[in-house]
């Protein structure tokens, strides 16, 4: 147990644990619902990566903009998009956070400045640069937090975006979720420089590799980065070392990795590691854990009920939202 953990205090531990558990239970339910045919399309679950979403979001303010990837359920929930609306989006219902038009990979929410769910690897990075430019040019204090995977570091848009953000000293927090596999291709099999932080440093960004399995380490590193960015220090890159405990999507036999490797990472998962450490430090009990788990399950159940009961958008409305409608801002 680290001193840091001890200092965090019981309340903080329980808050972070609750936030991660609701993501975990949401994802498990999505997997079940996919099996039942309620959710279709490509669904990418973030089991194992909850600490990154929760730890980073805890350091951001309501004025900050979020740009995410297709593995974004956790980001969306941690950002505060109501679970009901996220689950309804999984179903494709009209009450979904994107009115059902986006599905699992395209969660959007204007109220929390959540700019999607982008299914083009690397495609969100330039967007974050532009959102940050808008903050800077309008004299606002917000920053753009941009999540992407290590696979995106092979894309040209990663390099173009880091260069531009550093060149113009824009308030962007680049958060690389390095889960070691771009779909089924291991990092060392596809990239000559396997340190994403080293890539960031090459463009002049303060860059740091962080244990993405330790929610405190994530929050601490993100907190420092956010402070530096808000002080005008320019963009920062954080490489969150994490692991995807489930398959890439629902169509993945996982031929590219050993079961033993997955099991080893499961023991280091962010929820189990926090729980173990917090119990050892007498900051929480098994009853606490069970209570939070039950609360998460209840919230997910309610979200499923909401999604089930929600209406479909009429097919007659198919052509809406291709262009802005009259009266749009």
């Amino acid at each position: 147990m680290s001193v840091r953990t001890a200092r965090a205090g019981r309340e903080r531990v329980l808050g972070l644990l609750a936030a991660m558990l609701r993501i975990r239970q949401f994802e498990e339910t999505c997997a079940r619902l996919y099996g039942e045919g309620k959710i279709r399309g490509f669904v990418h679950l973030c089991n194992g990566e909850e600490a990154v979403a929760v730890g980073v979001m805890a350091t951001l303010g309501p004025g900050d903009a979020i740009v995410s990837t297709y593995r974004e359920h956790g980001h969306a929930l941690a950002r505060g998009i109501p679970m009901d609306a996220v689950m309804a989006e999984m179903y494709g219902k009209a009450t979904g956070c994107s009115r059902g038009r986006g599905g699992s990979m395209h969660l959007f929410d204007a109220a929390t400045r959540f700019y999607g769910g982008n299914a083009i690897v690397g495609g969100g990075l330039p967007l974050a640069v532009g959102l940050a430019l808008a903050e800077k040019m309008q004299g606002r204090k917000g920053l753009a937090a941009c999540f992407f995977g290590e696979g995106a570091a092979a894309e040209g848009e990663f390099h173009e975006s880091l260069n531009l953000a550093a060149l113009w000293r824009l308030p962007v927090l680049f958060i690389c979720e390095n889960n070691l596999y771009a779909m089924g291709t291991a990092l060392e099999r596809s990239q000559s420089q396997t340190s994403i932080a080293a890539r960031g440093a090459a463009y002049g960004l303060p860059s740091e590799a962080v244990s993405g399995m330790d929610v405190f380490a994530v929050a601490e590193a993100a907190g420092r980065a956010v402070a530096s960015i808000r002080n005008g220090g320019g963009p920062v890159l954080l490489e969150m070392c994490t692991y995807r405990l489930r398959a890439h999507s629902m169509f993945d036999a996982q031929l590219y990795r050993d079961k033993a490797e997955v099991e080893a990472w499961q023991k280091r998962g962010p929820i189990v590691s926090l729980t173990t450490r917090a119990k050892a430090a007498a900051l929480m009990t098994e009853e606490d854990y069970q209570r939070l788990l039950a609360a998460a399950d209840a919230e997910v159940d309610e979200a499923v009920r909401f999604a089930e009961d929600s209406p479909w958008e009429p097919a007659a409305d198919l052509g809406r939202f291709v262009y802005a409608e009259a009266g749009s801002p």
Binding site: P126, L127, A132
Partner: peptide, 9 residues
């Protein structure tokens, strides 16, 4: 892409 982001912002 930065233009798109700036427009959104």
């Amino acid at each position: 892409g930065a233009g798109i982001g700036a427009a959104l912002g």
